[in-house]
């Protein structure tokens, strides 16, 4: 039966998933699978490993949805946090000596769907926000989040004291939060489109 879950919020879908609703789970995957895969691929830099991270991350969503507390976080944050955690675990286990980020071959984009346009818009928005951060803060955020380095590894790699790395990450996220919040004010009415068809 088609229940038309498209109008439901991400949080409502997670609540359904907590009751073992497979359709709601599929809808969540359709909403976040792509960005999750992109994130995992960027972190692990290997398509097979990225698939593993997405698979394990989504199964964690399936198993622990009952513990998600909507008052504490957006569902999107929760899901992407689970995916990121899996990706970082995998890359730390599989690639003890990580190389520089590998440039991915451009992917053929046959289906230039609305969803893709939406993801491009969000990517631009984050890229612009990152560009407004001091170089060193941006570097610390990117190496930690996408490189999967621990703060101690970062300190070694950059030849800086651990305390410096910690405060760069702290001020980096704080500034990013500020810049993104400003952006939202400027682009009033900036909302995630929901498919109505």
């Amino acid at each position: 039966m088609a229940r038309g879950l498209a109008h439901l919020s991400d949080e409502a879908l997670v609540a359904l998933v907590a009751r073992a609703d497979e359709e709601a789970f599929a809808e969540l995957y359709d909403r976040f699978g792509r960005v999750a895969y992109g994130l995992a691929l960027r972190v692990v830099r290997d398509p097979a490993l990225a698939e593993d991270a997405v698979q394990e991350g989504f199964l964690a969503v399936w198993r622990s949805a009952a513990r998600f507390v909507a008052e504490r976080a957006k569902a999107s944050t929760w899901i992407l946090t689970l995916i990121h955690r899996r990706a970082v675990d995998l890359v730390r286990r599989e690639q003890p000596r990580r190389a520089e980020p590998l440039e991915l071959a451009p992917h053929p984009t046959g289906d230039d769907t609305e969803e893709e346009a939406w993801l491009r818009l969000r990517r631009t928005r984050v890229q612009e926000a990152l560009r407004r951060l001091p170089d060193k803060q941006r570097e610390a955020l990117e190496l930690a989040y996408f490189g999967g380095f621990t703060q101690s590894e970062l300190a070694d790699r950059l030849g800086e004291p651990l305390g410096t790395i910690k405060s760069r990450m702290f001020s980096g996220l704080a500034s990013l939060r500020e810049v993104l919040a400003q952006g939202e004010l400027e682009e009033e009415g900036w909302r995630e489109p929901r498919s109505t068809s």
Binding site: Y37, G38, L41, R123
Partner: peptide
């Protein structure tokens, strides 16, 4: 609050269809 910001970073990655 930081997790919400960090998860925005996820959108910076190229996102080919899985």
């Amino acid at each position: 609050s930081f997790q919400a910001v960090a998860s925005e970073l996820a959108y910076e990655a190229e996102a080919p269809a899985p």
